[in-house]
């Protein structure tokens, strides 16, 4: 654990372009980066997952969402990534409309220009198995931005080098450990210079001894000032990385506050119950 923290302080810049991302907090602090309003989402008339969720995130914040399974944490992140339709409510990003429910039969409206500024890493491995590690990294920059192969590969190699994965550039995903795959998945998302990173239980599928190497990478991104929203069951990680903790249950935000407050002096009975259960294993 201490190893992670010392790594955090010695983290280098992970920005793929190096110049753009020096201090996102300084320029935009104070303004809400994300504003989620009255979000409703159901998978069927009987299965309501989000029931009017409200959430605001300032630029430079690291929001950790905790809560019981089925409480809407992962759904919230999937909606944030534009992967799910919503029933009602809206999300704005840096003041711009991002996701809007079209009341009636039409589909959810997603502002694609905004979506491109958000990166996501999933619980399950999502590397493309037929592409090498470097190809996994360069595909989106080349196809989405029209970046040249040489330029994308140079940036990709730089990122892999910083992640200690340069030797794996030509390998295929199945030749990597679970922890390495998730680090590559993070690098792949960073290739598009996201303004916000979403991490959806990225260590849940990993063997315990591989969790730390992935969390270290996220820690060093945090150190660099990357705004992020994290869903995790790892309470130690939550405590250490969060600038604010959000307890989500029953499809709404039950309680939120600094990690100290949520973990040491939760106000709501439901939060206390959840934390008691988690820490009494």
């Amino acid at each position: 654990m201490n190893k992670s923290m010392s790594n955090l302080s010695s983290a280098k810049s992970f920005s793929a372009t190096d110049s753009t991302n020096k201090s996102p907090t300084a320029s935009t602090s104070g303004q809400a980066l994300v504003k989620v309003s009255n979000l409703h989402k159901s998978y069927s008339p009987t299965i309501q997952v989000l029931k009017g969720l409200d959430l605001t995130m300032a630029a430079g914040e690291r929001l950790v969402v905790i809560g019981p399974s089925g409480g809407g944490k992962s759904t919230l992140l999937r909606v944030m990534m534009g992967l799910e339709q919503i029933d009602s409510g809206s999300i704005t990003f840096a003041g711009q409309p991002y996701i809007t429910a079209n009341d009636g039969k039409a589909k959810t409206k997603i502002n694609l220009a905004v979506r491109q500024q958000i990166g996501m890493v999933f619980q399950h491995y999502t590397l493309f198995p037929h592409l090498t590690i470097l190809q996994n990294l360069t595909l989106a920059p080349r196809k989405v931005r029209g970046e040249s192969k040489a330029s994308a590969e140079a940036r990709g190699m730089a990122l892999l080098t910083r992640f200690g994965l340069a030797a794996k550039a030509g390998a295929y995903p199945n030749q990597l450990s679970g922890g390495q795959k998730q680090r590559v998945a993070i690098a792949r998302a960073l290739m598009l210079d996201p303004k916000l990173m979403l991490f959806d239980e990225v260590t849940s599928a990993l063997d315990p001894e591989l969790v730390a190497e992935v969390e270290q990478v996220i820690m060093s991104l945090a150190e660099q000032g990357m705004p992020m929203m994290i869903v995790t069951h790892d309470m130690w990680f939550a405590k250490n990385i969060a600038s604010r903790v959000v307890f989500c249950a029953g499809g709404v935000v039950v309680e939120e506050g600094p990690p100290d407050q949520i973990f040491n002096a939760p106000k709501h009975e439901r939060t206390r119950e959840f934390l008691d259960r988690v820490f009494h294993i």
């Binding site: 992967l83 493309f128 792949r188």
Partner: peptide, 30 residues
């Protein structure tokens, strides 16, 4: 083709055509 990979395609902003030509078809053929 695993649905998670399609999620990743969307998260990476890959256009629908690229998803088909670069992710779905090569794997399906292999």
């Amino acid at each position: 083709i695993r649905p998670e990979e399609i999620d990743a395609c969307i998260a990476l902003g890959l256009p629908r055509l690229t998803q088909i030509t670069n992710i779905v078809l090569p794997q399906a053929l292999l």
